[in-house]
Each structure stands twice: as C-alpha cells, then as structure tokens.
Design a binder for these strands. Structure first.
Lengths: 116, 116
DNA sequence: CGAATTCGTTTCGGTCCCGTATCATTAAGC
DNA sequence: GCTTAATGATACGGGACCGAAACGAATTCG
C-alpha cells in the first residue's frame, strides 16, 4: 500500500516541518542544499561533485559552494580520491548523520499529528 | 488513522520532492521562505509582517526581505491596511496559488511512489 | 495637544550564493 | 614525452540575506 496523502495534507505537512525547523533555529538550508544533503545520506556512495551536479542538473560551482557551506556546518566532508586524484569524494559526518536522523524524526512526528 | 511514515520513508520523500523542484528549475526557496509562503496560503488571513515574525520566531526584517524576494517572484503581494495604516497585509496571488497547488501535487506524487 | 508606542522598512558591515568563464591539477591518448 | 581531456576550485560582478540598530509614519495614551 503506497503512502496516500491528499494535497492539502501534503502542504500542511511541509509547512509544519519547515515551521519546526525555523523555530528551532536549525540552519536555514535551501532546497538545493537539502537535495544535496539527503542524496549524500540516502544514496549509496561514492559521491562526487560531478555526480551530484548531474543528479541535480545544476553546474559544478553550485555543488562546490553548497559543500563549502555545509562543510562549515560540519554536515559533510571532502576528501581526495587516492585512485583518481582529480576526484573529490564527499563523505558523511557524525554531525550530518545526527542532523539527518533528527530531521526524519521531525517529519514523522508532524505527519502523525496531521488532521485527516 | 494518522499518516504513518517511517523515518527512512520520510527522508526519501523529502529528497525526492527537493530533487524534483531543483531539476525542474523552480525558485530555490529556503526553509524560511517556504514556511512563510505556506503559512500565507494555508492559514486564515489576515497576515501581517509582525504576525508572521511571531509565528516563525524570527525578526521582522527577515519577513520583509522574504516578502521582497517572493513578491518579485509574484508569489505574494503587499497592501496597506486601510483600517490601521501602519499595518501591511500580505495577500495571495494567482501565481502563488498555482505554485503552491503544483507543489502539493509534487509531494503527493512522490509519496505515492515511495518504496515500503 | 504632545509624548510614547507600534508597525514595517531601511541601513550598516559582512557573508553567502548566483551564472559564466577560467584556473590548476591529474589522468588518459597518441 | 606531449597533447588532450576531465575534475573540482576559483575569479568576477551582481544580487540576496544576515542580525542589530535606527528610521519614518501612524496610532494611542495622558
């Protein structure tokens, strides 16, 4: 059975989750940054700048800058690939894993209290 | 019956929706902007700068700036309150309503194709 | 009336992000 | 070896945003 959501419930869920994030002073990430962060944490590695740029259909500097910012927030880290030293491998961090895990819990909690 | 989502499904849903928005060249809104936009479209009017600032627990300039940007995108509009001309009433627009409606449909569509 | 309060905006110095173009480094092809 | 290609980062001018403080306009209070 697929997840059945009506549009008004979907929008209400999105609102409640975003409100919760803002009110709890979480980093104010853009949709691009969230797409990158969740892709790194949900899709199987390895992750490269080029791969992420293709997956999001954006240019490489967009990925580089997002990694700069999220790296400063300790949500991701970068390391040179020893097999092909042109590559940069993007890796998860403990802080990032905790952030993503907590974020998932927030969504679940808000989904549970949605009106029908 | 409440909406039952497991954390991994919730995160996957968020990722798929953000990926869809980015890939479709939608405006790259931040969580703050989305929280403001959805509050305007889901909560009953009237909406004021002060009211939104309190609801999000942010300062008023944050709201003013977000309204500047989303106003340029035609997603919301501002009008002086004739009863108390200090107030600015934030109103919905046709473009904004279409954007929000489409966004809700994207969430629903991605929820339906979630793996169990 | 004048003073105090409220509302939204603006200013300030600073940071982040944009798209485009170019860069250095590394690897692969000949 | 030398040239070509690929990868990620950087420079550029411009725009958006930050928090804190000050601002003008409108209202309320005394």
């Amino acid at each position: 059975m697929p997840i059945a959501l009506r549009p008004i419930q979907a929008l209400r869920l999105w609102q409640q989750v975003c409100l919760a994030e803002v009110r709890n002073d979480m980093p104010d990430l853009s949709e691009r940054q969230i797409a990158i962060l969740l892709t790194i944490y949900l899709d199987p590695p390895p992750h490269t700048v080029r791969g992420l740029a293709e997956r999001l259909k954006v240019t490489k500097p967009v990925i580089t800058r997002a990694l700069d910012t999220m790296g400063a927030l300790k949500l991701v880290s970068r390391h040179r690939d020893d097999h092909d030293r042109r590559n940069v491998l993007i890796r998860r961090t403990v802080e990032g894993a905790l952030f993503v895990e907590r974020f998932g819990d927030v969504i679940v909690a808000r989904a549970e209290e949605l009106p029908l």
